[in-house]
Design a protein around this nucleic acid. Structure first.
Length: 278
DNA sequence: AGGGAAACCCGAACGC
DNA sequence: TGCGTTCGGGTTTCCC
């Protein structure tokens, strides 16, 4: 399964360090600094610092939108939310204004969690299972089938877009990816999920997978003030394209609000199915 | 059960 | 130029 850009970034940054740049897995945390305590979801700061120092990083992975650093006795779980970022930099690099957490290792590098908007969160958990248990299936997991997706859509009576973004229904879809996937599948965000047929569900899953893979391939999207080096924003078809012409049919793209979220559609390509909003 | 609203944040964009 | 206002990203929590 392809990894999130951040996971790749951590690996790549260290691999490119050459002989002195092994991957973080295998390293020990020698020091931890918290610059904004509220970034810690659990536990308290003192406990966090006492517990984390000395532990070896075993594996770096991800689940849904969470980054999961498996330590010896805990999992260090990070969620970047929207403006969070992770940097791996040479030890002694000058601190950035929005740094929230810094980890030093028994190697001349440090990992920094930075987040201007302060939405990102950090967990130190002995057992992350309860967190994972709240998440739905991974759309990029090949064992997740079209039929399963169809049945899950069928058993709900929900507006399509909020449902797709519901992390307990399907894990990993954000606002941008959802708008782009719905456009690709030619489905309306307000469409009642239970009204999709097998073909439409299959098309939607394909679109979701393509959009996610595209985003990963392009290192994510850098929008507005948040520049993380990604270029997915250059391939948007509808997101933030309100007022522009639809690349398929030329119709002016509209912006509406669905589930409190800015939502972008081509009103011609994305029609409600007959009775689709019942 | 589903949907709406508010809260958490603050840099940027907008309006005057 | 400067000031006030609005916006929006992901998630949780509360309310109808």
């Amino acid at each position: 399964m392809p990894e999130l850009p951040e996971v790749e970034t951590i690996r790549r940054a260290l691999q490119e360090g050459g002989r002195e740049g092994p991957a973080i897995p295998g390293w020990h945390i020698t020091e931890a600094d918290i610059y904004w305590a509220k970034a810690l979801a659990v536990p308290d700061e003192t406990t966090f610092l006492r517990e984390i120092v000395g532990q070896q990083v075993r594996v770096i992975a991800r689940r849904a939108k969470f980054l999961d650093l498996e330590l010896e006795r805990h999992h260090l779980v990070l969620h970047l939310r929207m403006s969070g970022d992770i940097r791996v930099q040479p030890l002694g690099t000058e601190a950035h204004k929005h740094d929230r957490l810094r980890l030093s290792f028994d190697h001349p590098y440090e990992l920094v969690f930075s987040d201007p908007r302060k939405f990102g969160r950090i967990w130190l958990l002995s057992d992350p299972a309860p967190l994972w248990d709240r998440l739905g299936p991974e759309p990029l997991d090949e064992s997740f089938t079209e039929e399963e997706f169809y049945l899950r859509l069928k058993q709900r009576q929900r507006q399509l877009k909020p449902l797709l973004m519901d992390q307990s229904f399907l894990a990993g879809m954000g606002n941008i990816y959802t708008d782009e996937a719905l456009f690709q599948a030619r489905l309306h965000p307000l469409q009642n999920s239970a009204k999709l047929n097998r073909q439409q569900a299959a098309d939607l899953l394909s679109a979701i997978r393509e959009q996610l893979l595209q985003g990963i391939a392009r290192n994510g999207a850098s929008i507005d003030w948040v520049y993380r080096g990604g270029s997915f924003q250059n391939s948007f078809n509808v997101y933030a394209k309100n007022g522009k012409n639809c690349p398929n049919c030329g119709t002016v793209i509209e912006k509406l609000v669905v589930g409190q979220r800015g939502t972008h559609i081509c009103p011609n390509c994305q029609r409600m199915l007959p009775g689709g909003d019942d």
